[in-house]
Amino acid sequence: MDICYCYHGKQVCEPSYSWGPGIKEQYKIMFIHAGRGVYQIDGKTFHLQQGEGFIVYDNILCYMEADPTDPWIYSWIAFSGNGVIPLFEQAHISPLHPVFRYSPLFWFDSYLDEFSACDVNHSTSELRRQSILFRSLADWIDMLVATSQLLPEVRPKDAYIRKAVEFIRMNYNQRVSISEVAHIVGIDRVYLSVLFKEILNVSPQQYLLNLRMDKAGDLLDNSQLSITEVSYSVGYSDPLLFSKMFKKVKGLSPSHFRSRLKRDSSMGLSSLD
């Protein structure tokens, strides 16, 4: 199974402490041990408390904020790999349904102690951390399945949107039509558009466009790919059309967007001198 341990941790948050909006490079399972807070992902807001948890997805914009009077304490385990999404699907977890409740009998702290006890200089430490990761994930899945009545009920509408969003996110760099998405989901194209507007407040076309431009912005910022290469990487075979759509969404051409990022970065570094 292609899942690799990255890191783990625990944090006692200050009142109103926040992170984001931003993008993480790994998946994270967050367990709330005390207090309250707000989690936002993909345009949805969740008000969470002790005994609940949530998933941070890689490369999906999210935001976290602790309650001003009862700030949360949470722990997490971060990992990456192509096997993560199928694992989440076993627990009916997705970007549209990233929240779960967990049993008080599921003592995640014991796994944190095991991770921390691994000597990073030991020749088998990486194998030991992988072993702990797989055991903790297996127990987490078993816990969710055993207490499935605690999971949020998924409405048919939400299930359609979840399937559509997952397909779009997996294929945004290909030639994707909304008719194809509707066919994959198993509903009429018009009804799919109605559901996107109702639940996500955007059309499926706009959702796909925004996703592509967000991914393009990441590539312009974090890679040396040419504008043409970025264009192909996010599903556009015509670089001129890509540049036109990028400017429409981001307000700048791809080249100006990249040069501004470099300028802002250099100004930030010079201010530290």
Rank of each mutant, 00 (worst) to 15 (best):
E114M: 11
S270K: 08
C118L: 06
E25D: 06
S123R: 14
E229I: 06
V194L: 08
K250I: 02
V145Y: 01
S148N: 09
K10S: 11
Q50H: 11
L241S: 14
K244F: 13
S270G: 03
S116I: 05
V56T: 12
R263D: 12
S233L: 01
E14P: 04
F46M: 02
Y17P: 00
P21W: 14
S116A: 14
L105W: 13
R36E: 14
C4L: 07
M245A: 04
K262A: 11
W107I: 13
I132P: 03
F79G: 06
S193T: 14
E52S: 08
K157D: 14
S255H: 05
M30K: 08
R169D: 11
S203C: 10
P86D: 06
Q49T: 12
C6F: 09
H8I: 02
S177R: 03
P68R: 11
I161F: 03
F246I: 08
S123Y: 15
S136M: 15
F134E: 15
H97D: 01
K215T: 05
L269R: 10
K10C: 04
L192N: 08
S259N: 00
G43R: 00
S270W: 11
V120D: 10
S271R: 14
L127E: 13
K215Q: 09
L150C: 14
V190N: 00
L192P: 09
S265P: 00
Q11N: 08
A117Q: 07
L252A: 02
Q205N: 08
T124C: 06
F167W: 09
S193L: 10
Q90V: 13
I168P: 05
Y207Q: 06
Y27L: 00
P104A: 12
L195H: 04
K28I: 06
L192H: 05
N171M: 02
L192Y: 05
I178E: 10
K10R: 07
G235W: 10
M64E: 06
P254V: 12
N201P: 01
A117L: 10
Y7H: 10
K157P: 02
I178R: 10
D142M: 09
Y172W: 01
P86R: 02
F196D: 08
N171I: 06
L261F: 14
K10A: 11
H183T: 07
K244T: 13
K163S: 12
G37Y: 00
V176T: 07
I178L: 15
S259R: 01
Q224Y: 05
F246M: 01
E14V: 07
L272Y: 10
V38L: 15
S94K: 05
W76H: 00
R258E: 10
P15E: 10
L225D: 09
V120L: 12
I41W: 01
A146N: 13
N210Q: 06
K248W: 07
Q40M: 14
V234Q: 03
G43Y: 02
I55N: 03
F88L: 15
A164T: 07
I55K: 09
A138R: 08
S116C: 03
I168V: 11
M170I: 04
L272D: 03
S110F: 05
G22H: 12
P68V: 07
M1T: 13
